Simulated assay, not measured.
Amino acid sequence: MDITIEVVHGWRLLARVRELIVEPSVQRLILRNEQGDTLFVVEGTTLRSVTTTRPILAAVKAVADELPRVTLEVVRDEGLAHEVGVATMSEEFDRAIDVVEPVFERY
């Protein structure tokens, strides 16, 4: 389990949650206000359910409209990403370097 805590400005919150919805490794999103009070918790299976995505995004937009900053806690399970076949950031970087390095060697 990997837990990332981000302070996100209200105007950026909806876009950030949309980015996290498509990540298969995300298990849970926890939104907290500036005082640390939990606003709501969304489980990963609920995030990716077609019937609940729009209400979740509507709730996130309502929070984003009211609060200037929100603490977003993202709980990830990297093992799940490997099972699904999604590359992690380090694997993507390694692949990109394998492509870019030969180009620099020519010059």
Rank of each mutant, 00 (worst) to 15 (best):
E66D: 14
T38R: 10
I97S: 04
E91Q: 15
H82N: 07
V42W: 06
E105D: 13
R18E: 15
Q27N: 09
T51R: 14
L57G: 04
V26S: 03
L47H: 06
E101N: 08
R16C: 01
R106I: 13
A62Q: 12
V99G: 00
A62E: 14
D37L: 12
E91V: 06
V103D: 01
V100N: 00
A87G: 05
V50L: 13
L20C: 02
V75L: 10
K61M: 04
V41I: 15
T45H: 13
V100F: 12
H82I: 04
A15R: 14
E78Y: 11
S49Q: 13
V75W: 11
E83C: 03
I56Y: 02
L14I: 09
V63K: 08
E78S: 11
R48Y: 01
E23D: 15
R106D: 08
V17Y: 05
M89Y: 11
L57C: 02
Q35L: 10
L39D: 03
T52Y: 06
T71F: 10
G36F: 03
V70G: 04
E43Q: 13
P68Q: 11
R106P: 00
R54M: 06
A58L: 11
P24C: 01
H9N: 11
P68C: 01
Q27V: 12
V63F: 03
V103G: 00
N33P: 06
E34D: 12
F40Y: 08
T38A: 07
F40T: 02
V75Y: 08
S90N: 10
E73D: 03
A96E: 10
T38Q: 10
Y107V: 12
D65Y: 08
S25E: 15
F93H: 06
E92V: 12
T53V: 12
W11C: 03
E23H: 12
E19W: 08
E34S: 12
V50A: 14
R106M: 10
T88A: 07
R48G: 08
R54K: 14
E83I: 08
G36W: 08
L72R: 06
E101V: 15
H82R: 15
S49C: 08
P68M: 06
D98V: 09
R16I: 02
V60H: 09
E23R: 15
T46A: 11
T53Y: 00
L67C: 02
I56N: 02
T38W: 00
R48H: 04
P55F: 05
H9M: 07
V86F: 06
F93Y: 11
K61G: 05
E83G: 06
V22R: 13
K61W: 04
L72V: 11
G85R: 06
D77H: 09
D77F: 05
V86S: 07
E73P: 02
R28Y: 02
D94A: 15
E78H: 13
T38M: 07
